[in-house]
């Protein structure tokens, strides 16, 4: 299997010399479902933000889907976010004034697609995630689980090879969380999409192909 995420000695030290990440190195293969487990303040979000090209490391290198990331080139970072990465957030972060379908179409506005193609792709994705009858509802009209499904559809809509999820079940009850994990696992298996998920819930580690643990900025594998 080719590597989709290649991390080599990534470190991040915040201003004032506070270390958040210490020489993290690992490789994740295409279609793998990986979880990163760690306590609050262990550096999980820092690592996820760097891997998602939202933050810059102090040192080290990163290759995403065969493309070496140049953190000093903002246009390359935008291009990678558009084509290689999908995000799922803990707070769902759907735009409240857009319908479920419009939220899913949203990333395709920046990476221009014809409106008909956008609508068709978003509609099919929502239907495949069991939200065919909720397309035209606004986020406030959806349950937490439904909102997170919309967010997953939004992350998938550009067909990226990698999806980063930041505690995607943190705001959901146990049963809905299990459903969301199952859904993501299924998507990873069927679409060969690499999932890198940050969570502090160990019990969901069983869904993962591999789990990393982050303690005081240091990554250890299982």
């Amino acid at each position: 299997m080719p590597a989709t995420i290649e991390v080599d000695r990534l470190s991040k030290v915040y201003r004032g010399g506070v270390p958040a990440l210490a020489e993290a190195s690992f490789t994740i293969e295409k279609g793998e479902f990986v979880t990163l487990i760690g306590r609050s303040g262990s550096g999980k979000s820092t690592l996820l933000n760097i891997l998602g090209c939202l933050d810059t490391p102090t040192s080290g290198s990163l290759v995403l889907d065969g493309v070496p990331v140049n953190f000093r080139d903002p246009s390359q970072l935008v291009s990678i976010r558009r084509q290689k990465i999908g995000f799922v957030f803990q707070q769902f972060n759907l735009l409240p004034h857009l319908t479920a379908q419009e939220n899913v179409e949203y990333p395709m506005l920046f990476n221009y697609h014809e409106p008909k193609i956008r609508a068709h792709t978003a509609g099919e994705l929502l239907t495949s995630l069991g939200l065919g009858d909720r397309k035209h509802h606004h986020p406030a009209e959806l349950s937490g689980g439904e909102q997170q499904r919309v967010a997953i559809a939004r992350a998938l809509v550009s067909n990226p090879p990698i999806i980063f999820a930041d505690e995607p079940t943190g705001n959901l009850d146990q049963k809905t969380s299990a459903d969301i994990f199952s859904l993501m696992q299924e998507i990873s298996r069927v679409r060969k999409t690499t999932f890198f998920m940050v969570t502090h819930e160990r019990e969901f580690g069983e869904y993962a192909d591999r789990s990393f643990r982050l303690i005081d900025g240091k990554v250890t594998g299982t």
Partner: peptide, 8 residues
């Protein structure tokens, strides 16, 4: 969020 989703 828009930036994370690809907005320049």
């Amino acid at each position: 969020v828009s930036m994370a989703l690809g907005a320049s």
